[in-house]
Structures are given as structure tokens and as C-alpha cells.
Design a protein around this nucleic acid. Structure first.
Lengths: 229, 229
DNA sequence: TTAGTAGTTATGTTCTACATAATAAATGTA
DNA sequence: TACATTTATTATGTAGAACATAACTACTAA
């Protein structure tokens, strides 16, 4: 076994430039709006071709961290967190372990928003939520029921007044569907219905609601428990 | 005003190619390991230069959706969700509204993991958790206390057995610190201490724990309530 | 049979050239 | 002087060619 073995940076130039730039941004403590050096300056400073720099910059542009305008050059800008999440959230190519993890994450969120809900809920919200729950009972068509199920839980997130949370949840929705499909199981509802939840949300305490939501999601928690290693 | 006014795709070629490729991947329902056409083939098919294609592909490489090997070509691979998240999670350049939203998201998660905890907790975990909580009492140094605070909550996430959740939480940690700093407020602890939480986790019910955690986080929830629009 | 060699291929990197849009400078006219 | 128009200037966007490099294939020779 050789001692002075070289680890060798198997990383591509673009990847290394990405890392260097990230460090550079942090070290200079750039804020949105701050101008960046030109591509040629960066290329010269890093000792690589302009092409490689552009490949790295392209990544930052995708994340929304860098914006470029002709002539004026490039500036730092604030990234769209959820938008980026959307770009990697592709259930089809994600490994099953991560899908399960995200499914649990969604369950945790669903349970965890209770307190936020009680802080932000309004009468108007409750009326709308009630209407969604009522619509659901009238329909027999399965596809419609699923989309209504989604509408109900989405409305809950909307009621938290937290837009990031809302968008984040809507990205987790496909995961939900995908895990269910993987299991080849039918969606089983808990004992507590959506209409029950609305009733609690209107007149019950936050503890009541937490209990209710747990019952509502019980089948899913049972599934998680059955997978326990 | 001209009628047939063209909105014009102000998007760059690289951006449009990114979109096209994403559609292409989905339409062909690619799975990890599936080979992609060569860069030149893609360039020809899309009618753009190889350069532009590479800029778009560079983005997918960053996300971990595409991997490239010399000679063998490129293949689809499963992306690292949390790793990608890490790349955009830069509190310094994020807008304040999103920071607040993420702070709340973290609160929701903290409350929401209770049920998962009770499913997965073990004696060994509880012992370790207890030790962390005990260490904390002996120390006066503020920096040390903060890192211990972090250690405690991190351990909780670890106990859920959900690695994605754990990694996700550790990414939200800087947000926590950043929001506190923005407020120029001191970290106020709730009435229920970490040691109390361990005690509950060991002998109490999941409902007890939820109550306890809420009390523990109460100052933060109060802050959220005070910001209510 | 097998070790070694040459050839092939797709990505990685560099360089040059030019298009394009936004800005600044210069110019000319009332 | 003030203002409108035109003319550079500059940095990003796109294209194309060339060569390096690693990995795989197939052939060759001992």
C-alpha cells in the first residue's frame, strides 16, 4: 500500500468552481443586489476557462442565487427555497427509503401545524374548510374524493398563513400518493373524518384537535409502526 | 398597442433546455441507471450548441439527477434531496419572510415528531438524551449551552430513526439562530426544561410529551403569535 | 490462453468568434 | 443650455472547433 497516496480530486472543474464560488460568496458576505465580478475576471482568478465558470454559474442561476443581466453583469439574489425543492422532488427516481422518510416527515408536519392553526384560524377559513368537507360526502367518484382529500389538507396549511409551509406541503403531496401506490394499498381513512376535524377546530381545544388529527391519520401511523426496524 | 405582441421567452437557452430535458426525462419515465443520449445527440435534437446543453446538464449534475462517466456517457441517478436543500439554505441572502416561515416550519416539526418518537424510542436513546440534558446544567458558558441545546433537539430527531428528517432539521438550525439574531433577543427557555422532557419521554404518555414540548417552546410560539398579521 | 497494445468513443476543458442587450458617451440640433 | 439621436462600449449569451482524458473494445503477439 502506497503511503503518500493521492486522493485526487475526481471532481470536475465546474464542481470545484461551484465550491470555490460558494466559499467566495460567504467570505465576502454578499447580500442580494451585490454585484459579482465578470465571468472573465472569475475565470482568470480561478485559473479556468470561461466555459467552466459559466457551467458553475449556471447552477447558481438555477438556484436563484445569481441573476445575470447583459452589460450590467451579475448580482446576488435571494433564492426560492421551495422552488428549488421542487426541482429535485421527483418521486419516480427517488429511492424508496427517502420516500418513506418524506412520508413520515409529512405526517409529522400534519400533526405539528395544530398550534399554528389555532393561532391563525379565522371564521372565514373555517367556513371554507367546512364546505370542502361537506362536498366530499356527496361524491362517490374515487378520483374526486382524492382531490378533495388533498383540498382539505391543503386548506389546513393555507390557514397557517405560512406560504412556505403551504408550498412545501403541496410538494410532498405526490410522495403521499406514490408511497400508497408502492404499497398497493387502498387509502384507509381513520375514525375521525374531515367533518369531525372542522367541528373540533371550531369549538374544541388545540389538544382536542391534536387527538383528532392523530385518529384521522392513525392508519398511516400504524403503517409506520409496522415498518419499524 | 400591437395586438400580436410576442411575450418572447426571455429565458436563456440553458434554462429552456433544462425545462425540455425535465419534460423528456418524465415522458420517457427514466429510472436511475437508465442511459441518456450523448451531449451531441441532445444538442442536435434540441437545435442548440453543445455548450448550452452542457450548462443545462451541469444543473442536473448538481442536483444529482444526472451522473456522467467518460466514454460510458450519462445516466439518470437518484438525487440527494437534503443535499440540494443545503445548497440553497443560505440565511444570509434569504428574505426575512421566508426565514420566519422556516422558523415556524421548524416549530411545527418539533411539535410533530412526538408520535414518531414514541414509536421508535429505545432505552439506550433515552439514556443518551438524559446525559445531554444533564451536561447542560453543569455548564455556565453560553456558547456551550447553545451547542448543548442543539445537541438535545438533534438527538430527538435522531431518535425518530428518520435520517432525512434528521438531516433536514440540522439544516434548519442556522435559521433558528439567525431569526433570534434578527430579533436581537436573548434565547428564552420555556418552563419545561430538557430534563423534564426526558422524564416525560421515559414515563409519560405521548400526550404528556406534546404538552411538555409546547411549554418548552412556548416563548417561540408567543413570538409567532405577536407577529400575527 | 492471455498479456499487452492500439483504436474508439463520450465527457471534460479550452479557445475563439460573434450576437445581443443595456448602458454610457458623444454628437448634433433647436 | 437643454434635449434628442446616434454611436461606442461592455458583459452576458450562443456557437463551433479543437484537443485532452478516461474507459471500454478488439485486435495482436508471445
Amino acid at each position: 500500500m502506497v503511503n503518500g497516496i493521492k486522493p485526487i480530486s475526481s471532481r470536475s472543474m465546474a464542481e470545484r468552481v461551484e465550491i470555490s464560488l460558494r466559499e467566495y460568496f460567504a467570505q465576502k458576505s454578499f447580500k442580494p443586489g451585490d454585484p459579482l465580478p465578470t465571468e472573465l475576471e472569475l475565470a482568470a482568478a480561478l485559473g479556468v476557462s470561461r466555459n467552466v465558470v459559466r457551467e458553475a454559474l449556471s447552477r447558481f442561476k438555477m438556484l436563484g442565487i445569481v441573476e445575470a443581466k447583459k452589460k450590467s453583469g451579475m448580482v446576488i439574489s435571494n433564492p426560492d427555497i421551495v422552488g428549488t425543492f421542487e426541482k429535485v422532488m421527483t418521486p419516480e427516481i427517488m429511492d424508496e427509503a427517502t420516500l418513506q422518510d418524506l412520508f413520515e416527515l409529512r405526517l409529522a408536519l400534519e400533526m405539528g401545524i395544530a398550534d399554528l392553526l389555532y393561532i391563525h384560524k379565522t371564521e372565514k377559513d373555517l367556513d371554507e374548510l367546512e364546505e370542502i368537507a361537506a362536498r366530499e360526502m356527496k361524491e362517490k367518484d374515487n378520483n374526486f374524493r382524492i382531490s378533495n382529500e388533498i383540498a382539505f389538507h391543503s386548506k389546513l396549511y393555507e390557514m397557517t398563513g405560512n406560504n412556505t409551509l403551504k408550498r412545501f406541503q403541496s410538494l410532498l403531496l405526490p410522495i403521499f400518493g406514490y408511497v400508497i401506490k408502492l404499497e398497493k394499498k387502498k387509502v384507509i381513512s381513520g375514525k375521525v373524518t374531515h367533518q369531525d376535524l372542522v367541528k373540533i377546530l371550531r369549538k374544541g381545544t388545540v389538544e382536542d384537535f391534536k387527538e383528532g388529527m392523530l385518529s384521522h391519520l392513525q392508519p398511516h401511523f400504524d403503517r409506520v409502526r409496522s415498518f419499524k426496524k
